[in-house]
Computed example of a mutant assay.
Amino acid sequence: MIWFSTAEKLNDPFEFSFHLSEMHINGFPIDEVSLETAIRAMKQMGVLPFSEINDNILMWSHYSESHKGFCIEFERTDSNALGNWDHCMPVLYDDNLPAVRPIELGDKKVVSKILTTKSELWTYEREWRILVEKGNQTYLLPGNITGIVFGYKMPVDIRQEIARILGGTVTYMHAVKSATKFAVDIKPVSLSDLTS
């Protein structure tokens, strides 16, 4: 099982934000209370974010308790949710909030654009996301776990515990500080090194 958070629990205050390009539908003014209710409901949807990369030091700092956590690698195939573009969508990066006409809020493609557009400041994350109707709860894994990358500060006993649980079913790697750059290099780790 894996946790899907709601948009309001994520660290970007602009998650699921947009602006209306007009404040009426067919000449009738927008009911502000109904609009706020719709926005609140949208922000209760569940989000499971992924990244194409596993070696960004900012993400290790922000999302893994300052390099003490780990990164999970998933298998992406045509037969699982990660390989289905209707379920797992790339995040779009832009300088502006999506502009939406009120009547478009019923269009699935327009709503998907709202839910997957973030500021260009977040481009370094190279994010993809799966969205579900209700957040702040667990769902089945979207694909098989194929690898674990340990943060360079992760304690040895926790690495060993993860290896004990997963055994030889996945590959193990760890982040190592580069000797020449402000970067981490991802290096393989053998199961025998973790369990000895």
Rank of each mutant, 00 (worst) to 15 (best):
L105E: 06
C71F: 01
Y139R: 15
D12N: 15
G27P: 13
I130P: 07
A41W: 00
F150W: 07
A163T: 07
P29E: 10
E104V: 03
I25G: 12
Y172D: 02
D12L: 10
L140N: 12
A41L: 12
G135V: 08
M23E: 10
A38V: 02
A179D: 02
S112F: 02
W60I: 04
P102Q: 12
L20I: 14
E15R: 09
Q160E: 15
E22P: 04
E125D: 08
K108G: 05
I186F: 03
E15T: 09
F18Q: 01
E22F: 02
K113L: 04
S112I: 01
Y93F: 12
D78M: 04
A179P: 07
K43Y: 06
N80C: 14
N144G: 00
Y63G: 13
S51N: 06
K187L: 11
V184D: 01
D157T: 00
G143E: 02
G167H: 11
N136F: 05
Y93I: 04
N11Q: 08
E32C: 08
T138H: 14
T146H: 00
L121Q: 08
I39K: 09
W3V: 07
L121N: 11
K9T: 09
S196A: 09
E127R: 06
A38W: 14
V156I: 10
P13D: 15
Y172E: 08
I186R: 04
P102H: 09
L166P: 00
L194D: 14
N11P: 14
K113P: 00
H62E: 01
R164A: 05
D185H: 03
F4W: 13
K181C: 01
Q160F: 08
H24G: 09
A183V: 06
G27I: 11
L105W: 00
E127Y: 07
P90M: 05
R126V: 10
L10V: 10
R101I: 09
A179S: 14
